[in-house]
């Protein structure tokens, strides 16, 4: 019971301790707020710019969720295709890996050529950067169906489709939800990159403008807002994972 309480408290203690250390270090060493503002300064800035930050954060959230939603739909679909066909899997893998290796910030200018500055580039950047882990995980889950299980069903006259939908897809769900946690973080990175380079709103855009104007506290305040949003979105996907695939998390390791 004691260790359980300690475990529940540990994240809070560590987080608060981190900021306290930061504050103390800034004051003790007299670090200029231009180099590294103290948490109290940042917090004040967050309060001061709250309306602006809130407006831009909501926009970023919306871009991220839209890109992430596209990635989930497309990732599931492509993952199912790749998982059920060894030919398509082998054939398209180099293309996929090659595409995934391109830093997405390099793709943003092309998106701007195509769609202009606005909401489309951030959404598409978020989508492009985050669909890959979903595809790979869903495909792996489906492709690793036990051969015995496949034999049992095939001997009953099951079609490839039956096997994919009755066994492959449910089996891939833990992989899928695991990949969502990676994908949501990536989508977030993508939307901020998109906003920085090709949007007039959003935290990314706010960051670009604030840093150009040397408004250091605002830059830091925007970063803090980004971090908090990121944690919230991650927590939501982690919660979805736990509630959807409880059967896969019965090991002592996950407890």
């Amino acid at each position: 019971m004691r260790t359980k309480n300690q475990l529940a408290l540990a994240p809070w203690i560590f987080t608060i301790g981190f900021f306290v250390l930061w504050e103390v270090a800034c004051r003790a060493l007299g670090i200029s707020s231009f180099i590294l503002p103290a948490p109290s300064t940042i917090l004040l800035a967050v309060w001061e710019y709250r309306i602006q930050l809130g407006y831009h954060a909501l926009h970023t959230l919306w871009m991220t969720v839209a890109g992430f939603g596209l990635a989930v739909a497309f990732g599931l679909l492509l993952g199912m295709v790749l998982g059920s066909s060894r030919l398509i899997n082998a054939g398209s893998y180099p293309l996929l890996v090659g595409f995934n290796s391109i830093p997405k910030v390099a793709v943003v200018p092309i998106l701007v050529f195509w769609f202009g500055v606005g909401w489309v580039p951030p959404v598409l950047t978020a989508f492009l950067i985050s669909f890959f882990p979903i595809v790979v995980n869903v495909a792996t889950g489906i492709a690793t169906v036990e051969p015995e299980m496949e034999d049992v069903l095939r001997a009953l006259g099951a079609s490839k489709r039956d096997i994919v939908f009755k066994v492959g897809v449910p089996r891939a769900m833990p992989y899928f939800f695991g990949s969502l946690k990676v994908a949501i973080t990536l989508a977030y990175v993508g939307s901020v990159i998109g906003e920085q380079n090709a949007s007039n709103v959003g935290i990314g855009n706010l960051l670009t403008r604030a840093s150009a104007a040397f408004e250091v506290p605002l830059v830091w305040a925007a970063l803090v807002v980004l971090a908090v949003l990121g944690v919230v979105m991650y927590a939501i996907t982690a919660y979805a994972e736990r509630s959807m695939t409880g059967w896969a998390q019965r090991s002592q390791m996950a407890a």
Partner: peptide
Amino acid sequence: PVKLAGMAFQNPTMLPWRTTLDNILLPLEI
């Protein structure tokens, strides 16, 4: 595939997301 066969292996290959009863009913879905 002959469609009139039932199979069992050394590995029971039950699907962990289905209850035992739903596992047993699986062939009927095919």
